[in-house]
Write a protein that binds this DNA or RNA. Sequence first.
DNA 1: TTGGAATGTCAACAAGGCTGACTTAAAATG
DNA 2: CATTTTAAGTCAGCCTTGTTGACATTCCAA
Lengths: 170, 170
Amino acid sequence: MAEGRPGQGFGGESLLFLTDEQLRQGIEAMFFAYRGFTADPDRILAEMAYGRAHHRAIHFINRAPGTTVNNLLSILGVTKQSLNRVLRALISDGLVESRVGVTDKRERHLFLTDKGRALETSLSDAQRARMRAAYKDAGPEAVQGFKRVLEAMMDSDMRRAYAKLRETGA
Amino acid sequence: MAEGRPGQGFGGESLLFLTDEQLRQGIEAMFFAYRGFTADPDRILAEMAYGRAHHRAIHFINRAPGTTVNNLLSILGVTKQSLNRVLRALISDGLVESRVGVTDKRERHLFLTDKGRALETSLSDAQRARMRAAYKDAGPEAVQGFKRVLEAMMDSDMRRAYAKLRETGA
DNA sequence: TTGGAATGTCAACAAGGCTGACTTAAAATG
DNA sequence: CATTTTAAGTCAGCCTTGTTGACATTCCAA
């Protein structure tokens, strides 16, 4: 708010958006926005005995059905012991199904059950609604910029892990 | 990646950025980018006995020197018991100074010491460097859009709390 | 057949959230 | 002036989610 339009490519003014003050504002915006981003799912999860860790597992299993545990580990960036606790809960509650691999029987392929898909939908609906509102508020041009900055902010291994996840078929 | 330029204001194509797929991509980008966003400070903090909670306290005390504990609470959105544990550590380690209020002696005003400022600088440098790189990568137009979407994603109470923090003088 | 990879499990621990109860001091209010 | 409210701090206990380390099982591959 009240930022005096960074220049569009003439002289030193084009670097105005790189001042410490601008960067600090970006950092704080990121902090507050992430809280808003997780607020809605957090409320739903709190009603059941779940947390964000469960949400993340459900999200990515839904995104890439049949993904292996190892795959999920590298996506989520946690230890297998940590993920295992979460998966065990989801499996025993009947939200996730773990199938022994066909070509490699050591691997377990993960799928959402109908019940799991129902929760995923409810979490995702809430999160998408906020995202949609923010996108609508900001406009298509802003959304382009938003994604471009976010992608530039990721580590390269994150992008690789994500790409790997998408390859994993059933 | 490989997104076919959403239309710039003609017909229904201008709403292409609101499809579920686009929204899901935004959600995932947010997740991965936030990890990148915190990765550098996390590494520095891990060397000392600190975590993200300490970083957040240090950040906002630096941002609004003299802010009160209550103020900080509403900004950070945690309980006083949780914040107190963190503040106690920072004060006893000589990074933060707590001064009794002048007009209201119940209040404690918080300041960074030289040592605290040194850590803040090191954390902030790391985070700003990544932010700067991302901004540079994406360009000024994208940065505008980035901030616009993030701000639209915040809860209104977050913006209020943030504004309140800025008012708090020494 | 043996080594190593993938998975799962047990135990222990820490950070950082939370609630509830309680104290102290000071301000505000009747 | 007496009472209530507010700001801050503290103690105890609990939960989630992360961590290490050790170890068993299964099974592919050299």
